[in-house]
């Protein structure tokens, strides 16, 4: 075990009273709202490690606590500097909460800040193992569209598509389960202070799951649109 690393960032100085301060949002000397350092990611805003499992009640509680302090309503009569800081920081808080609250957006965000988010080069291309089913699905969709425009019998086609939809919904839950499993691996790797290459391997897998998920989701949405 190594000793905890100390921050190499220069000490933060308050814009108002010019004292050094600790903490993230407010000056510990004069209490004025501060500029958030560029490096503060969404996890850090909430004082969380970069892990993918987040306890939602705790997240909400922290969100509400910070909202009380940062919301522009508190700064209507303050200086323009403070009004702008409040706008910036409360919007970042809201953005952070929106992303971290959503388990999928959370994974995307993590990969984004780690420069590991790579959308499939051919977004429209089916993953190989799904090719056959996707082909069948597209055929059914075409038939349905045709039947709609020519006034043909829709019931049989719709029933077939409904089965396909259920099938892909199941696949979606499977991907979600895989994503969850890999997310747990990620959290374990963080806890174990795993090295860079191990982390990158996990992130590459998370990225694959995300792409696969996006592809299947898109299919489901298309089917639902045609069925409604």
């Amino acid at each position: 075990m190594t000793a905890p690393t100390t921050s190499t960032n220069p000490p933060l100085v308050c814009w108002s009273c010019h004292e050094r301060f600790l903490g993230t949002h407010f000056c510990s000397s004069c209490g004025k709202l501060q500029q958030i350092p560029q490096s503060l990611d969404y996890f850090s805003i909430f004082g969380l490690p970069k892990k993918l499992w987040i306890e939602m009640d705790g997240l909400e509680k922290k969100f509400l606590q910070l909202s009380w302090k940062l919301h522009p309503d508190n700064f209507v009569n303050a200086s323009e500097t403070e009004r702008e800081l409040s706008l910036k920081q409360s919007s970042e808080l809201n953005d952070a909460y929106r992303v971290l609250r959503d388990p999928i957006a959370r994974v995307e965000y993590l990969l984004g800040i780690e420069n590991m988010r790579k959308e499939g080069e051919h977004k429209q291309q089916a993953p190989p193992e799904l090719l056959e089913e996707v082909f069948e699905l597209n055929e059914s969709l075409d038939e349905l569209r045709e039947a709609k425009s020519s006034g043909g019998d829709l019931a049989v086609l719709k029933a077939r598509l409904e089965i396909a939809e259920t099938n892909f919904q199941t696949k979606l839950s499977e991907v979600d389960a895989q994503l969850q499993g890999t997310a747990r691996e990620w959290d374990a790797a963080i806890d174990a202070s795993a090295d860079d290459s191990a982390r990158k391997k996990i992130m590459a897998r998370l990225n694959e799951h995300l792409n696969r998920r996006a592809y299947i989701r898109n299919l489901v949405t298309n089917v639902q649109k045609e069925l409604s």
Binding site: P72, S90, N94, R98
Partner: peptide, 11 residues
């Protein structure tokens, strides 16, 4: 910025 995002919100 999706609808129903708490404001202020940014992107």
């Amino acid at each position: 910025i999706p609808r129903n995002s708490t404001i202020p919100a940014s992107a």
